[in-house]
Design a protein around this nucleic acid. Structure first.
Lengths: 172, 172
DNA sequence: GTCTATAATTTGATAGAC
DNA sequence: GTCTATCAAATTATAGAC
């Protein structure tokens, strides 16, 4: 028996795809419903408001990202950096999409409070991962700087449609 | 006689303020019209479509940025970097807003083609400025990396509401 | 150049049948 | 849980008077 994705997950999948292209205003209940093959009222059944949907979207995205990063304790500094770098490289190369939280972060003044809060938590957790992975003797770029570089590198590479700019920005 | 801003400029001012908070979907003809004190049909008189408005918005933003940077030939490498850095610091500290093109860049998959093209031109021009200002003997971060760091630093500092993270990300 | 009026569409959201 | 039906509001955009 194959693991069937629940309707709920398929809604989140469709929403994530659209949100990573156009941001919080870039997806609507009706579009997502059509993507999934249900009616918009069914989407509202699972996620009463758009803020609910947005919040869960970011939380699932964050959980997946942290699961991909794994345990920072087990990494050397360069492994920790490479792991986070690969997370963002996947967004660019594999998904051809922005980082959901980078995009929401840029829009943060226009987000419902709970979505903005969930977005901030993503940044905090990635920074905490780097802080732990780099250890107390790290003298290179601080964790927030590494994260900033990666989010910015995604934007630059995608706007100029040149993936080598990502690698260029990432080598420090 | 004081220099009265034209209605056209005041429309662009209002649109820029809103676009730098919520992106391309974050401003509407009616909102801008109310900000300026006219009717939405008058906004359409000056900018027939939203894509027209978006494009001119980005072009004016780019012109102002390049005017602020001045002539790259007159700068040492560290002066060139500091000048670009100050451009972004102003967005954060003085305006408390995102860089318009950083936000539009993150949303680029959902932008009308002409707006996306104008946004790409901003990135090209800033990179060209840095390329010239740093000169052929520059061995530090490449221009695209410096720009990426600055756009990302804006996002991180704003999402976590900590301006020191901008300075932290900017010192390389 | 600005207005009134309006069109056509889309949006987030709800009520109630099944 | 999903549907039909509907709502009120907002959206981009246009026609035509002044």
């Amino acid at each position: 028996m194959t693991t069937d994705a629940t309707i709920r997950d398929r809604i989140l999948d469709a929403a994530e795809l659209r949100a990573r292209k156009g941001g919080y205003g870039g997806f609507s209940f009706r579009e997502i419903a059509e993507d999934v093959g249900v009616k918009s009222s069914s989407v509202h059944y699972h996620f009463p408001t758009k803020a609910d949907l947005g919040q869960e979207l970011v939380e699932r995205y964050t959980q997946r990202a942290m699961a991909y990063l794994g345990d920072a304790v087990e990494r050397t500094p360069s492994e920790a950096i490479e792991r986070v770098t690969q997370l963002f490289r996947n967004a660019l190369m594999r998904d051809d999409k922005m980082c959901l939280c980078g995009l929401f972060g840029a829009e943060r003044d226009a987000l419902p409070a709970e979505v903005a809060a969930a977005t901030a938590e993503f940044f905090r957790l990635v920074i905490a991962y780097l802080t732990q992975g780099l250890g107390p003797n790290w003298t290179g770029d601080p964790p927030a700087a590494i994260l900033a570089r990666l989010e910015g590198a995604l934007i630059v590479a995608r706007v100029l449609e040149d993936q080598t700019l990502f690698e260029q920005s990432v080598r420090a």
